[in-house]
Every structure is written in structure tokens, then in C-alpha cells.
Design a binder for these strands. Structure first.
Lengths: 299, 299, 299
DNA sequence: ATAGGTTTTGTCAAGCTTTTGTACAT
DNA sequence: ATGTACAAAAGCTTGACAAAACCTAT
């Protein structure tokens, strides 16, 4: 037996709603204790939860109140069939949601996309268009900085949760990071996702990690390659310095992969075959195949 | 024996509340030391923690105070089943969540189940019911394609992390895969889990692997058996061709196990005792016992 | 053999306390050197450490002093098993996992904790201790920057996914952010979690948001309060400037709540009752109760 | 949704005792 | 290092109060 408050929490409604539904529609009539307080049993709670779901989908309570539990179940089954919108319209819809600070909606669409789409499609058709569109809307003032931050933060969160799903790994890992001065990490995340999808063991270290810290990690765990991203053109020179530190300290059989707008410049400045620029997803895929075949376990 | 302060911390309450409950409702009456100070034993602490959980869920202390420990446990169980928790209701709840595209909820429930339940229970009470129900709902159209994908994708990532926990293995492995044209892998995953649970060394290769690729893997690592799943009736013929390739190339002492709706048809068409149809979990278990006894080393 | 000072440091106590315990309760009686100075052996240090932990958990030293080492161990065990005692070891275990880059293990423990513990307990006994311990280990070099980043990132991901669960809201929201120059957001996240738990509608905007951007957000959606966090002592002055901008631009009926190490200083410097320092979770809870009652619409 | 009325509940204070950590003087 | 001193902390009981959780009725 549950008092109103407990019943409300379990069914996701409020005590006020419970009383109102009882009085107006006789939807669920609880027992009473000796002091007149409502007491709900588990069957009633089940019924309330169902009613909650159905009202949430747009059915008015007045229509539902008269139905018995079997009829409610039938109704739930029917409304389960509703489909889901096309992928193409997704980024637009998601940004509209953010414009009104409807964070939960954005997040829901994103989780669904992550779960349903193969990673390459996800990156190409949702994540990248989203980033482009954010840039465009930000440039013409339709999107505030706060909103841009929200988008990055949500993207980051969700995409990272994919990367962190990998089980314990004994194979040498690919380290992903940006060097100090480069805060933009979404491109890096995209690359890490592609690597993860190709079944490479990824350790994602995030933005602005000093070169010596990277070396400490590489010394501590077996490392297959180090992948860096550099976009900000103003940071190309200091990044180069850090890159040299990394290059000097890193065991010579570990390649360094560079992505982002500065990649080509940095790779040429370093002038060592060990340091390669990744201009697109295909290059990354090719590099990884070599890596994984050489040292990895056959998939 | 614990003084008030310790008791309060352990149960998540405050000393004041403890004293008030004792004074007003005789909820928990501690022993006293010679100077009149309260002393709680561990049973009392347990009781306090239970009371804390239940008051947190909306039950007034006045109603709880009179109940004995068993009654409190019953109430906790009830409230767990009504809204949240109970293993039996989990698959149903999780599918409802998917039906509403509440991906997070599904994923959270799954992670918790994986982390808290022993693998056999997890497989028998959560994963398998889930797969059965997905199949049923999908077959009669209650589950949209997008939703079926959702479930597959989420299950896949989480369950694979269980399968990949057997890292270094010297015993011959059981390879799990589907042949090209057969994208449905959930049944296969279930079988792989059962094998894993029976302590067989599993190598899960995933869906749509060409026969010659399978042969390459089998040539590369010691293989105990190859388990395939085929469900789509339209793919039975091309699958048969691939199966013949596999059968021809595979060392004759490695059996081929077939699961899914097409299993019986394919096994008969092959007409070789080495190729067997697994019609249910029990058959798989039996086959594996034979396998493991014959070649395996007990862990 | 260790002199008092060393013994005190190793056991986390002070020399005065050691002497007091010896004099008053004969808790630990050290050997003496030829000059009469105290000398503790390792068994004594062990015992002192145990005593320290137990007094920290609410046991008075007077009761502990008489017990032998085995009895102390039993008591420690008991308190680890009773109630929420077990969670206390969790943060340590989780950080050990990170030290070996066992990311998945950290993440799994965290998910389980999130799913099984009441939010206040989760924040007070897991999240906050984790942050403290990260700080401590980072300070003495046991934790590399890369590892500190990993912890933040994982915590952030999981905790944000709780915050984003709320459904559509019509009530004025509480905005959570840090001002530019303050990258640490985990304390802020903890506060946001507590607010969310108290059923307040939270909009989490993340770190380093300029004051004018915050004003744009506050102008766009109905805002119940603005919660900021400032920790870095070097940033107290520039933060104050930003805070003034915010204070000037914000509608006068919207309070500003400050958390973190600089909170008190900033609140005093502003000298307006509208700007309040939140020194702990309890203050936050109280402020929110007032807020929600005055302007909020019950769900 | 709000208003008005009742009961329950967590918390705080006052007044008192005991214990404990630290500070000071020897 | 020892012994004394003292203020803060923690314990107990009784009493009180404001918030919360209920209810009904408008």
C-alpha cells in the first residue's frame, strides 16, 4: 500500500493530479486509511503509470478514465507504432530545439541518431552537418554563444559515451588529444569515433593536453599511435613547438597522425614520414588498417 | 555497536531525526551505555537505512515505524516492482522505453543490469526475454524498424563488452558470425552469450562476414566450432551457397552450428553430420559440453 | 621506530592528540628512548590510523581505546557493511582504476552508483569525495593531468545525462554556468544535480560563459535564478568585473547564487542581498525551497 | 489552481553534562 | 614531555515551530 506521494512518484505524476483525476473522472479510486488518507495498491500504480504514458502521448484523460486495463494496453500498443522522422531533417530540427533551449529534445534526437545510425553515416549526415549549421547560424547571429556551447557540450557528452563503451583491451591503443592552445575538439572526436568504429582501441584524452603529459601516458600504456587535431591558424606556431617535444620524446615506432586545418602545414614542417596528415576519413581508415594488421588481433 | 553520530552517517539520516523517530514513533530503540548514551547495533542500522529509503520514496515514518524488518523489505520490494527495478519487469519496461524513444532509460537499465546481475541471470531473465519480445513485436509490426535497430545497437554495444572480457585464451575458440545477406545478429549474440556463460572461449565476429573471411580467421587461430545464424527466409538460398564454401574450406574436425529460423532447412540441405541445427538453447548447451570436454581445458 | 611527529603525520593526527589519547585513555602506549621521548613502532602506527578512521566516522575515542586491534578491525568491517558504509571505499577504488587507464571500470562503478544511490548520497559520498581526492592526488603527483581529464570527462558525461532527463518545463529555470576564466565545472555540476534532485528545473550552460551571453539567455527564457561557480583564486578579480556586468543587466527579481572557494569573497564585494554565497548543499536546498514556493508552479 | 484546515515531520534551541582537541605554562 | 586549562563539540531531554503533506471545497 502506498500513500499519495509514493504513488505519485512511482507513476511520474503529482499528488494534485492524482486527486483531480479521482474527483473529476473517477480514473483511479484508492483505498483510505482510518484517517481518510489515500492508499494505492500496486495494481492502481500500474494503471496510473499507463494513464501517464497515454496522456503524455496526447490522449485526454477524460477519454481514458473509463477504460479498463486491457483497453489501455491495447491503446498503448497502437501508439507504439508511430515512426520516426527522416535523417535529413534531423540536424535542422535539433537546432530549432536548441534555439528555444529545449535541451531534452535535442538530446533525445541525438541519442536516437547515435543508436540507430552506423557511425560513418552518423558522423557524415548528422554530426558534421550539425557543426556546419551551428557555424553558419552563429555567424549570422541566429545562435547565441550559450546555445553553441550547449550543442558542443551535448554532442561531446553523447559521442564520448560511445567511445567509453569499449571493454578492457590489451592491444596498443590509439591516443586522441589536442595540444595546448587548441580548444576545439569536435573534429578530433569525429576522428576518434571513426577509429572506434573500425574496432581500433581508442583512448580519448580530450583537448589541450601538454606534450609531456602525452608522453607520460604513452610511456605508461602501450600506444599504437598518437592522433592530434589542430584547427586554429593562430596557434600553428606554438603547436609546432609542442609537436617537436612530442616527436622527440615518443618511441620512434609510434606514428603521429595530424588532423584539422593545420595538419598539412604541421606535417610538412616536421618533415618526417612518421608524422602524417590525415586529410579525410579515408586516409585515417587506411592508416588504421595498416596499424591493426601489423600489431592487432584479427577481428 | 555504533553511537548516534556513526549510526546517522551510515543510514544517511541526522542524529536529530534518529532521536525524534525514537521519541515519537519508537521506530528504533537503541541500547544505552552506562552513561545513557545511545548505542545502535548493525541490525538497527540496517533498519534505519531501510526506513531512510522508504521515507525518501514518500512513505510517512508514522506508518513505517510499526512494521517489522520483514514487512519493510516487502514494501521495498513492492515499490521496486511497481515503478523501478524488479528483474522480471525489466524487459517489458525497457521495451516500453524504446517504444517512446527514451533511449537513455533503456541504456541505463541495461548497464545497471549488466553491472549488478550475474551473467546467467542476466542472460536468462533480461537479455533472452528482451530478444524474444523484440522478435514478437517486430514480427507483428508493433515495433518499428527504427526501434528494432535501436534495441540491436544498444544491446550489441553493451553485450559485446561482456563477450570481450575473456582476453587471453589458449583454448580453441567458438566463432560466431552471420553470412552476407543476414544482418540480424541478436539471436547470434544471445547464443554467443550462452556460450560465454558456459565458459566457452567466444570470438564474436558479428554480422555479414563472407565465408572466405571466416576461413581466413579459422586458419589464423585455433577454432573449436563455427556458429552461424540465419533468419531471413529470402536469404536461405544465397546463404546455402556461402555455407557450402565454408564447409568445403573448413578443417573437417570443426563442426558448424546453425541457429535461427533457417537452421533446420540449411542443415538438411547440407546433409552432413558436421553441420548441425541448434533449435534451442538446450541443444547449444549440449553441443558445447561435448566440445569443451573433448578439446577444452577446464579453466 | 618513529618519533611523535612522524607517527602523527603517518596516522593523520597531531602530536597533541596522540599524547592526549595516551594520557586519558591509554589508547596507544609508545616505547621511550633513553631521553624519555616517545617512539612508535609500525603496529602502533597501524593502530593509530585505524583509530583515526573510526573517530572520523563518529565513534568516540573513549569507546575505542579499550579495544584490541582485532576488535577495531571488526568494527571497521561492520561499518563498511552497514547502511551506506560500503560507498565510502568507492571513490578510492574508482581512482585506482583510472590510474591504470581502466576507463571502463571507472565508468561501470559510476553508473551503478548513479542508479542505486539517492542523489544526495551520491553527490556527498561519491562525486564530491572523488573531486577532493582527484585534487589531492593531482597535487602530490600521483595522478597525471591526462588522468585528471579522464575523470572529469567521465563524471561530466554521466552526470549531465541525469540533468538532461527532465521533461518540458514551464516553470522559470535555474541557470548554471561559470564565468570566463573559470574552467572548473565539476562543483557546478554537483550543485546542479542537487537542484535537479529537489525538482527544480535546471538549465545547465557549462563553463566560461560571458556575462552578456548569460544575460541574453535570461532575457530569452524565464529565469528563476542564476547559479555560478568560481574556484580559481587568481580569477577572483576579473570574475568580479563580469559579475558586475551580470548584476547590472539582470532583472532585479532574479537572485544570483555563488558557489566555490571564491563565493564568499565575491558576495561580500558585491554587497547586495540579491547576490548570495552558497557555502554548502544545505544552503542551496534552503534557497531553492524559497524560490520554488514563491514563483514556481507545482508540477 | 488556490484557499483553508489538520496532522505529521524535520530541525532548532535551551539548558545541562561529558568528552575531546588544542593551547599554555611548567 | 608533562600537567593544567579551556573552548568547542557532541551527547541527552524537553519544548517549540515552521515547513510539508494530507485532506476538502471553492
Amino acid at each position: 500500500m502506498f500513500p499519495v506521494k509514493a504513488a505519485a512518484e512511482l507513476s511520474g505524476l503529482t499528488p494534485e493530479t492524482l486527486r483531480a483525476w479521482e474527483r473529476r473522472h473517477v480514473a483511479v479510486v484508492p483505498h483510505r486509511d482510518d484517517k481518510g488518507r489515500r492508499l494505492y495498491d500496486s495494481a492502481m500504480i500500474e494503471r496510473l503509470a499507463r494513464l501517464h504514458r497515454l496522456t503524455g502521448r496526447g490522449h485526454p484523460i477524460r477519454d481514458l478514465a473509463g477504460l479498463d486495463d486491457a483497453a489501455l494496453d491495447r491503446l498503448l500498443d497502437e501508439s507504439r507504432q508511430a515512426g520516426y522522422g527522416a535523417v535529413e531533417t534531423l540536424p535542422g530540427r535539433m537546432l530549432d530545439a536548441v534555439a528555444d533551449y529545449r535541451v531534452d529534445e535535442f538530446d533525445r534526437d541525438l541519442s536516437v541518431a547515435i543508436a540507430t545510425l552506423p557511425v560513418p553515416i552518423l558522423v557524415a549526415r548528422v554530426v558534421m552537418p550539425l557543426l556546419r549549421e551551428v557555424g553558419a547560424r552563429w555567424a549570422d547571429g541566429r545562435l547565441a554563444i550559450a546555445q553553441e556551447r550547449l550543442v558542443s557540450s551535448l554532442l561531446r557528452t553523447r559521442l564520448l559515451s560511445i567511445l567509453n563503451q569499449h571493454p578492457r583491451e590489451r592491444r596498443p591503443r590509439l591516443l586522441f588529444a589536442t595540444l595546448p592552445g587548441e580548444p576545439h575538439e569536435l573534429g578530433l572526436l569525429g576522428a576518434a569515433l571513426l577509429a572506434h568504429e573500425a574496432d581500433a582501441p581508442v583512448l580519448y584524452l580530450g583537448p589541450e593536453l601538454p606534450a609531456d603529459e602525452l608522453l607520460r601516458v604513452a610511456a605508461r600504456i602501450e600506444t599504437g599511435a598518437v592522433a592530434l587535431s589542430s584547427i586554429d591558424p593562430g596557434q600553428a606556431r606554438p603547436t609546432l613547438d609542442q609537436l617537436r617535444v612530442l616527436h622527440r620524446g615518443l618511441s620512434p615506432d609510434i606514428p603521429i597522425w595530424l588532423g584539422g586545418a593545420n595538419a598539412r602545414y604541421l606535417a610538412e614542417a616536421m618533415g618526417d614520414a612518421r608524422v602524417q596528415a590525415l586529410t579525410d576519413g579515408a586516409t585515417l581508415a587506411r592508416l588504421m588498417r595498416v596499424r591493426l594488421r601489423r600489431r592487432g588481433v584479427p577481428r
